[in-house]
Amino acid sequence: MRRRAGLGAIQKQKLEQVKYREKGSEIQENQFQQMSKQLEVFRENLEEFATKHKNEIKKNAQFRRQFQEMCAAIGVDPLASGKGFWSVLGIGDFYYELGVQIVEVCLATNYKNGGLITLEELRTRLVAARGKAKKHQEITNEDLLAAVKKLRIFGNGFTVVPMGKGKWLVQSVPGELNLDHTLVLQKVSSLGTAWVSNSILMDDLGWTQTRAQSALSYMIREGLVWVDTQDPNETLLWFPSMFADCVSA
């Protein structure tokens, strides 16, 4: 190409570069859309296959592995049995599958709710993660409760607490592994006040009312805190173990 000189040429070159770049991002955008479409097709197909051909897939060891790999890459749940005839009698995989999915939802949301989730939210998340098919929408709270019941033999590490009015709270972290109380203690010692209240936990740690309440009532039960009802707004809880630090500070 002949080299051109002058201001006009430089401007022209710049213009060209911009155009090339635009074209480049356009192509990329296009490609991304294509990929997203393929992902959708893949997802639908995998979901369908998982339901229809479960037993055949199970039989072939090598293919089973490959199927699992595909599901993992695309984010499809291979466990998608419907509530068949047998599941009514508690036989079959349906409730086990549901159980796995329930624990999974709890684990995945653990980091923000501390192992406490309402049955309603649990169901919404579970259904969303299971797939789009209609039969997934039909999973009821009763199904979930029945599935959780099967986990009872693991002791009370995974429990459903009735909240009245048909509402339930699922607790997935046993007290021994619950770090919420440690978080409360950390919060108090960083405040340097030796007391804490519901609203502090909710505002500062972003907890829900239920989570804050359950952590604090546990501490009251265990005798770790003293209850102070003098504040007109809300109950304050004092940590005797931190009095000394407070005074000396």
């Binding site: 466990l79 086990y96 624990v103």
Partner: peptide, 24 residues
């Protein structure tokens, strides 16, 4: 170094894919 059994059960079954095991 420590994990609740429900958690273990979920992970094991996910790793197994379609061959679920029961809590028992």
């Amino acid at each position: 170094g420590i994990m609740s059994l429900a958690d273990v059960w979920c992970r094991v079954n996910r790793a197994r894919g379609l061959e679920l095991i029961s809590p028992e």
